[in-house]
Amino acid sequence: MSAKSVVRTATSGALTPEARVSEYDWPALGRELDAYGCAVLPKLLAADECRDIAAMYPDDNHFRSHIHMARHGFGKGEYRYFKYPLPHLLGELRSALYPHLAGVANAWSARMGLEQRYPEDHATFLKRCHEAGQTRPTPLLLQYVAGDFNCLHQDLYGDLAFPIQVAILLSEPDSDFTGGEFVLTEQRPRMQSRAEVVPLRQGDAVAFAVHHRPVQGTKGNYRVNLRHGVSRVRSGMRHTLGIIFHDAR
């Protein structure tokens, strides 16, 4: 599906996060998520916003922890989890994106026969997370240099997890870095894994399934397992903003 089919007008950094998020054709994005487990939101952030967020990486004041992937067998590269209060733009984007994805999440739960339902607003969902002992913020900023990669994984930080998350590419491919493609894999029962490589430009976001999603089969819906990662960066430096909607223990 082309970018024109999922967004009505070009996103401008002058728009509020809520206004720019509302510009997208969310029914079309929902169909993309249903069909492929992922959907691209072109130009969610302006180039200057991308640069400003990436520039936060060295500043400890914004973050609660710093992870070196190789130490944990996650791949090679590093990332930092933001602390509360989140930077204003990040917090506003998290709140603005959530309601549009909650409808997809609830439809998926129903199709998979799960009891879990998600409230319409993010504040209510976060309250549920905190009541379940999941109080640490999960939005993160990732940094890769040449030779770095992120192994296929799932971002589950507790019993309560929102089934869709968003990643925003902050760097410009072929200018800031080469390689480093976003990869999503899907394992269907009794079938080999299927890979989806998602091309992104600076400021583009991809919404994708965190863990499971439903697929319509000949005998009804069945559940498939998904993992995501980043292929090897060949040159330069790549920054990504990850927006996870549930908090962690």
Rank of each mutant, 00 (worst) to 15 (best):
G180Q: 06
D25M: 08
E186C: 03
G217S: 05
P137R: 05
A39C: 02
P139H: 13
M56H: 07
P189H: 07
D176S: 15
N61L: 05
K76E: 14
D174R: 14
Y118K: 04
E49Q: 12
T218P: 00
R234Q: 13
R111G: 06
G217F: 13
R194Y: 03
D159E: 14
V210P: 10
E172G: 11
T218K: 15
T9F: 14
G73P: 12
V198Y: 00
H62Y: 13
A54S: 11
L114Q: 14
L86H: 07
G133F: 15
Y118W: 13
V183M: 11
E196T: 04
T240M: 03
P85W: 09
P17Q: 13
L142C: 03
I244K: 06
V6G: 10
R80Y: 15
R194Q: 01
L89A: 07
P58K: 01
V198Q: 00
T124A: 09
R232S: 11
L200P: 03
A167S: 08
R80K: 14
S235D: 05
P137C: 12
Y222C: 10
D52A: 15
V210G: 11
G75Q: 10
G73S: 08
R111F: 06
H122W: 13
A195H: 02
Y79D: 12
V145H: 15
G91Q: 03
F177K: 12
I53Q: 05
R80I: 15
P85R: 12
G229T: 09
D155V: 00
A123H: 00
G242F: 09
L142R: 04
M112E: 08
L29A: 02
V224F: 07
S22V: 10
I243V: 08
L93K: 13
R51M: 03
L114G: 06
G13K: 01
A39E: 01
L45K: 01
K219E: 13
E78T: 14
C38E: 01
I243Q: 02
E115T: 13
D52T: 14
D176M: 12
T9M: 13
T240Q: 06
A102D: 05
L15Q: 06
L86I: 08
G180T: 09
V166N: 00
V197L: 01
M191F: 08
Q134G: 15
Q116A: 08
V198G: 00
F208D: 00
G30Y: 07
A28F: 06
V21D: 07
S235P: 15
A70D: 15
D159N: 10
F149N: 12
A28D: 04
P27V: 05
M1T: 05
S109C: 10
G217E: 11
T124V: 08
L45W: 03
A39M: 04
L241G: 06
E49F: 04
R213C: 02
E92W: 14
L90M: 15
C38Y: 06
H212P: 08
G37D: 00
P189Q: 05
G91D: 10
G103W: 01
K83R: 14
V230R: 01
C151I: 02
D155A: 07
L156S: 02
D174N: 12
F208K: 02
S231V: 02
A47R: 05
P99I: 14
D121T: 11
H122A: 09
A102G: 08
L89P: 13
C151P: 10
H130A: 10
Q216C: 12
F63R: 03
L184P: 02
P163T: 00
L169H: 03
K83A: 15
L140G: 09
M112S: 00
H239N: 10
P139E: 05
T218W: 14
K43H: 11
A39F: 00
